[in-house]
Simulated assay, not measured.
Amino acid sequence: MPDSDLSTEMLPRLQQELEELIRLSEATEQDRAPVALDQQSVGRLSRMDAMQGQALAQASDVRRRARKVAVEAALRRIELGEYGYCEDCGEPIAAGRLRVDPATRFCISCAQSSER
Rank of each mutant, 00 (worst) to 15 (best):
P2H: 01
D3F: 08
S4H: 09
L6R: 05
S7K: 10
T8A: 13
T8E: 10
E9P: 09
E9V: 14
M10F: 06
M10W: 05
M10H: 08
R13Q: 08
Q15A: 07
Q16E: 12
E17P: 00
L18W: 15
L18D: 02
E19F: 09
E19N: 07
E19D: 14
E19M: 07
E20I: 09
L21T: 08
L21V: 12
L21R: 06
R23L: 11
R23I: 10
T28L: 06
T28P: 01
T28G: 09
T28A: 09
T28N: 08
E29Y: 11
D31E: 13
R32G: 07
R32A: 11
P34L: 03
P34E: 06
V35D: 10
V35K: 11
A36G: 10
L37Y: 04
L37E: 13
D38K: 01
Q39G: 02
Q40L: 14
S41V: 03
S41Y: 03
V42Q: 07
V42S: 10
G43N: 11
G43A: 13
R44A: 15
R44C: 11
R47E: 15
M48R: 10
D49H: 02
D49I: 00
A50L: 08
M51W: 01
Q52A: 05
G53P: 01
A55Q: 09
L56H: 13
A57S: 08
A59K: 13
S60L: 06
D61N: 12
V62H: 12
V62C: 06
R65D: 05
A66G: 09
R67I: 07
V69H: 10
A70I: 04
A70Q: 14
E72I: 03
A73D: 15
L75E: 00
L75I: 15
L75C: 03
R76A: 15
G81Q: 06
E82D: 15
E82C: 06
G84D: 04
C86A: 02
C86K: 00
E87G: 09
D88T: 03
D88W: 03
C89P: 00
C89K: 04
P92T: 11
P92E: 01
P92A: 01
I93P: 03
I93W: 01
I93A: 06
A94D: 05
A95E: 06
G96R: 08
L98S: 00
L98P: 00
R99L: 05
V100W: 05
V100H: 03
P102Y: 01
P102C: 05
A103L: 04
A103M: 05
T104I: 10
F106V: 07
C107L: 07
S109E: 12
C110S: 12
C110D: 15
A111N: 02
Q112Y: 00
Q112A: 06
S113Y: 04
S114H: 15
S114F: 10
E115F: 05
E115L: 05
E115V: 04
R116W: 15
